[in-house]
């Protein structure tokens, strides 16, 4: 069962930058600690019109860790990610079979999509700051949720500080984000997502348009965030998966080929397809 999840990793220490997280030995079938799985994808098959783009994907994503989704372009990473927060439903012609359970809820039959989406944040491949001031970008959602202006500004300051933007752009809060660099824009989008206190962050190649320095900065933020939330990181950059992800899933033509501890998947892939892909793309 190549698609099935059975994770058996050794106790090892994770360190990125100044961060160090212990990824504990675990078997997902026997969940017993803080890393119990928070996202269950069960035989997910998805279509755009008549075109099948995901085929019986089964995957469990542990909480408070980073899970990377890797695989060749067009293999369905984005579609899988966007199904997790129902964003793919916004694409006319999209439909799926199988179930996605997040935070104990079946994504298909959510009663309150908006509340659900607040707990599942998302970063897009290209930074997408809204056409309004930097501050308004962070406070927009809070304002609509009825939070007082004072509190909104406090939260904005805190989140901009968290992503390291506050001191860089302190005097530009009321300006348009278009003057920011790509990396700063993406961090602004991260601050915007964090402001509504998500439990899960979905990241769709968030650094693919950024320079190496901005990429590293973003990665260190992800690692820090994993202490308090679950991150799913789609990336075409295998080195990035290696640097930050506790677990990695390899996809190819709509199928989840292999899934496991990051170090293991790269050093001792079980499936021949994974092996070929990793060998071709690493180094």
């Amino acid at each position: 069962m190549g698609n099935d999840v059975s994770l058996m990793s050794d106790v090892r220490t994770y360190s990125v930058g100044t961060m160090a997280t212990a990824a504990r030995s675990q078997t997902l079938e026997v969940v017993r600690d803080a890393h119990e799985s928070i996202i269950h994808v069960d035989r997910l098959t998805a279509f755009y019109g008549n075109k099948r783009v995901l085929n019986e994907v089964t995957l469990k994503i542990p909480s408070n860790q980073i899970t990377a989704l890797i695989g060749p372009s067009g293999c369905g990473k984005t579609t899988l990610l966007r199904t997790l927060n129902r964003m793919s439903y916004a694409t006319p012609g999209f439909r799926h079979e199988g179930t996605v359970q997040i935070l104990g809820q079946d994504v298909r039959s959510l009663k309150d999509v908006e509340t659900f989406r607040r707990s599942v944040g998302m970063l897009f491949q290209r930074p997408n700051p809204f056409p309004m001031s930097i501050l308004d970008n962070v406070t927009l959602a809070l304002k609509l949720f009825g939070i007082s202006k004072r509190r909104r500004n406090e939260i904005a300051e805190e989140m901009l500080g968290e992503v390291g933007l506050l001191h860089e752009i302190k005097d530009r809060l009321h300006q348009s984000p278009s003057s920011l660099s790509g990396g700063q824009q993406q961090r602004l989008c991260l601050a915007r997502a964090l402001a509504v206190e998500p439990k899960i962050l979905l990241l769709d190649e968030p650094a693919s348009a950024l320079d190496p320095k901005s990429t590293r900065l973003l990665e260190s933020l992800f690692v820090r965030l994993a202490e308090r939330m679950t991150l799913v990181l789609v990336t075409h950059n295998l080195a990035q998966a290696k640097r930050v992800a506790h677990h990695t899933a390899f996809m190819e033509s709509g199928e989840l080929v292999e899934w496991g501890d990051t170090a293991e998947l790269f050093s001792a892939p079980k499936d021949e397809r994974t092996k070929v892909y990793v060998e071709e793309h690493i180094g």
């Binding site: 964003m87 916004a90 908006e114 607040r118 944040g121 998302m122 897009f124 997408n128 927009l140 915007r192």
Partner: peptide
């Protein structure tokens, strides 16, 4: 992406 970004925030 503006629209989707706003939806993703829970709007």
């Amino acid at each position: 992406s503006y629209y989707e970004g706003a939806l993703a925030l829970g709007l």
